[in-house]
Computed example of a mutant assay.
Amino acid sequence: MNHAVPPVKRRVALALLTVAALSLAACGTGGGKSGGDAATGLGEKEGTISILAWPGYVEDGSNQPDVDWVSPFEKDTGCTVTSKIYSTPDQGFNLMKSGEYDVIAASGDAAARLIEAGVVAPVNTDLIPNYAGIYDFLTMQSWNSVDGVSYGVPHGYGANLLMYNTEVVSPAPTSWGVVFDESGAYHGRVTAYDSPIYIADAAVYLMAHRPELGIRNPYALDTEQLAAAAALLREQRTNIGEYWSNYRTTIQAFESGDSVVGTTWQLIANGLADGVPTAVTMPSEGVTGRSDTWMIGSGAKSPNCAYAWLNYIASPEVNGQATGYVGEAPSSQAACEFRSAGSCEAYHAGDADYASTIWFWSNPVADCLDGRTDVPCTDYAAWTTAWQQITG
């Protein structure tokens, strides 16, 4: 099940952006703390850039020699890249708050919190030529914009799927019930993602199987709905063998047989050794997923290199390679030219209707995301408390 990634076909030409200087000044961010103004122009590159990202997003050939889109960037821009990988939205959020990183690739739930906290700055998309080619349904969304102002460049998107051992789990599951109501059949060998945002997966299941709860959006849960999701997850807890955040440990668990069923990323399925008897499916109830955004820190020490990176990673060739490596749909149709044959079709690249069926990670807030005004919804702090009580 290893996923081969074709090497870069040709050098990606970076757009030459020549403006005298970059100026950042404070302004409001739609009710959150100040994240500053977007850059009005670009100046001389600083020579270094510090990047915070999900696994597989900043590859420099150290994991696989033929998977390297960092070295061409460094050579073409003179910006030396240092990077740190994080495993959960909370880790990414807290690391970015430290002020040590220029750029982050943030999932929707973390991106919204970073904007609200003033940790990231608006971006001037006119300074990012490759932004124009990005699918419209990824730009200016609730998790990467505020009041019509963009806060970043979409990277790619994909679903959180169900993976199972085909020799152990039978019949082939078509429902998330195999990790919830029916998880007792695989006691101690069920795995789940270790983050409060996983509560949304339980909510997706309850939307289909307990309609009387009235859940219309898995990120808009009132107190009763959150309690129902938490109860389901507490029942699941007795059968969990591992909560995972490090994708490599999950690969090892499926390879060893310690885990036989649970939520997964395509990157994990792609990383399994040949011969491991697994399959991946999208259950009938629907799925959560990620639509990540490259964002620039409001206190970035290298804003010019940061803008160069955002433009570079959105270029068709590099975006095609980077999203193909982790098993996501790319952010533009042009990127499909640089993907393996059939992969864009397999990931429904550019299919806005398909993307609309994925409940992309979003930040739970008190103002209900489903439009209700007669009751407050639970916010991320309440989800975090609930998750701590579930996992103990």
Rank of each mutant, 00 (worst) to 15 (best):
A117I: 12
A117Y: 15
A117L: 11
V119P: 00
V119R: 05
V123D: 03
V123K: 02
N124V: 02
N124Q: 02
N124S: 00
N124E: 02
N124L: 00
D126N: 15
D126C: 13
Y131W: 06
A132P: 01
G133W: 03
G133I: 05
I134T: 14
I134A: 12
Y135D: 08
L138M: 13
M140R: 15
M140T: 10
W143T: 06
S145D: 06
V146G: 09
V146I: 11
G148M: 09
G148F: 11
V149S: 06
S150Y: 04
S150E: 00
Y151L: 03
Y151E: 08
P154D: 02
L161M: 07
L161E: 05
L161C: 05
Y164S: 03
Y164T: 04
Y164P: 10
N165M: 07
E167Y: 01
E167D: 15
E167G: 01
V169Q: 12
S170M: 14
A172Q: 13
P173G: 12
T174Y: 12
G177F: 06
V178N: 08
F180I: 07
S183I: 10
G184K: 14
G184Y: 06
A185S: 15
Y186I: 05
Y186G: 05
H187R: 14
R189W: 11
T191S: 14
A192V: 15
Y193I: 14
D194F: 01
S195D: 00
P196D: 10
P196V: 12
I197C: 01
Y198F: 12
I199A: 09
I199Y: 12
A200R: 06
A200I: 12
A202G: 04
V204M: 06
L206F: 02
M207R: 11
H209G: 14
H209R: 14
P211R: 11
E212K: 07
G214D: 07
I215F: 10
R216I: 08
N217R: 07
P218H: 02
P218V: 01
Y219S: 13
A220I: 11
A220V: 00
A220M: 05
L221G: 05
